[in-house]
């Protein structure tokens, strides 16, 4: 049986309106065959988790260029757990300083793509984990 197309919710959390990166990533993942849902700007952690549940997503990609990642991302991860969405893998992108990566991984984030990450690396990451997961 063919695996269903993986669904990825890409979300901007908080007040930050920098959406160039997330929109480019959305197009690249779509072109690579993923189903991408982009619910727009200014989502609260609660709203993000609601979208993930409603869309039955496999992945959640959060983009932040506001510097508030150490406050907002752990909230989102915690809410996902509370909602029983343990299977949703969380990836974070944006202006994340190297020394904050460990803290994000420790709170349950699967992967962090900081500034300068290439589109092909991002797409390959999703494809690799995906093929590993379907085996």
């Amino acid at each position: 049986m063919a695996a269903r197309t993986r669904r990825i919710v890409l979300a901007k959390v908080g007040l930050d309106g920098h959406d160039r990166g997330i929109k480019v990533v959305a197009r690249a993942l779509r072109d690579a065959g993923f189903e991408v849902i982009y619910p727009g700007l200014w989502l609260s952690p609660e709203a993000v988790v609601r979208v993930v549940a409603e869309e039955d997503a496999d992945w959640l990609g959060i983009s932040l260029l506001s510097g508030a990642h150490l406050i907002l991302v752990p909230k989102v991860v915690e809410l996902l757990r509370q909602q029983g969405l343990h299977h949703v893998r969380v990836v974070v992108g944006g202006t994340i300083p190297e020394e904050d990566v460990a803290a994000l991984l420790a709170c349950g984030v699967a992967k962090v793509f900081g500034p300068g990450s290439s589109l092909s690396d991002i797409v390959r990451y999703f494809q690799d984990v995906d093929s590993h997961a379907s085996r």
Partner: peptide, 10 residues
Amino acid sequence: PRAAGEVGRL
């Protein structure tokens, strides 16, 4: 509440 985490940051 929507400002949480972003006050004085950028």
